[in-house]
Simulated scan of single mutants.
Amino acid sequence: MKSIIILLAFLISVGGYSQNFTGKATYKTHRKMDFKIDDGKGAPNADMQKQLQTQLMKQFQKTYTLNFNKSESVYTQNEELSSPQVQTGGMQIQIMGSGGGTDVLYKNIVDRRYVNKTEISGKRFLIKDALEDYGWEATGETKNIGDYTCYKATRKREEERTSFSMTDGEKEEKKETVTIETVAWYTPQVPISNGPEEFWGLPGLILEVQDGNLTIVCSEIVLNPSEKIEIEEPKKGKKVTQEEFDKIMDDHSKEMMERFKNKRKSKDGSSFSIEIRG
């Protein structure tokens, strides 16, 4: 029988850990891509779709570092990638998104809050909000990731997704509610209730996450490194809640789609705009 994970014993054990306990973990990410491209002849172009899908998947393979102590962490992208633009066969695709390599995600586990510094079109925001209670469920399954024994936990959530398509210059918006399962593998051998991105709340460092189409895997852990780890909370930017920022992102995406629509009317040739979020 599955059970909700209780962290009381874990928190007591961490209390006896060294006050100076620090570490850093390196994570690699990749995302599955699923989309269709219409070449204007009434049927998807299979060869072009495969080629673009391969190129876009490479664009979304990124590396991040999580610097942490017992109660705080900072998660940053290791190398900045420009906004992906892929062009093939006279067709150009541009990915719209926020922040990219400039994002800094700060988490405070004790206070159960986070601060995410991000940018949209050069404007800096500070998203300040409470950490989500994931309500993880233990499964009893284990596996090894590197030298660490990991335990499996899962959770499910309902999410409303909005997708946009453009046909002959006309924008179509579609909304649907989907169920997304998140699978996390954590190790009590690193006794902190933290992990990559926004994930946390398990009795050990999260080393692997499968969240819908996104996969995050830890490739290296260094505990108490000789080089001092600095964890600083971002301070500069317009302060907004997560809900307020989501509205800003939604309005920004619609504005970009309108610009794309007007640009397409003034040009010949095929052009598509794809937005990937979450």
Rank of each mutant, 00 (worst) to 15 (best):
F199E: 01
D133P: 03
C218V: 03
V110I: 13
E181T: 15
G89Y: 11
I95H: 02
G146V: 07
K152N: 12
P203K: 09
E275F: 03
S82L: 14
R155I: 08
S71W: 12
T187S: 10
A184F: 14
R155V: 09
Q59E: 09
I37R: 03
L56P: 02
L202A: 12
D251K: 04
I93F: 06
C150K: 10
M257I: 06
A43M: 15
K143S: 10
M96Y: 09
T118H: 04
E232R: 15
E172P: 00
A130D: 08
S3E: 14
Q19N: 04
K70Y: 03
E159C: 05
G269H: 08
S193V: 08
K261E: 13
E176F: 01
G23F: 05
Y75P: 00
K62V: 13
V86H: 02
M33L: 10
W200C: 08
I231G: 02
G89P: 11
C150G: 06
D39G: 04
K235C: 01
P188K: 13
T142F: 00
L8T: 15
G201L: 00
D251M: 01
K175Y: 02
F260S: 01
M249G: 00
G135D: 11
K24E: 05
D168N: 15
G15L: 05
L214D: 09
I248C: 00
L214C: 09
K267W: 08
V74H: 01
M1L: 11
F60Q: 07
K2V: 08
L131N: 09
K156E: 07
T65I: 15
F260G: 08
K24C: 01
I120R: 05
E233C: 06
Q53W: 03
P188Q: 07
A43K: 11
V104T: 06
M91S: 10
G278M: 14
T154W: 06
F125L: 01
V104E: 10
T26H: 11
E72G: 01
D111E: 15
D133W: 05
M256T: 02
G100A: 04
I192F: 06
R155M: 10
I12V: 00
Y186D: 00
V217H: 08
L202G: 03
K261I: 10
E208F: 00
A9Y: 14
G23S: 03
G122Y: 02
P44G: 10
S273V: 08
G90Y: 13
L205I: 09
M1K: 08
G140L: 11
R161V: 10
E79A: 11
V74L: 12
A184M: 07
K32L: 09
L52P: 03
G122I: 05
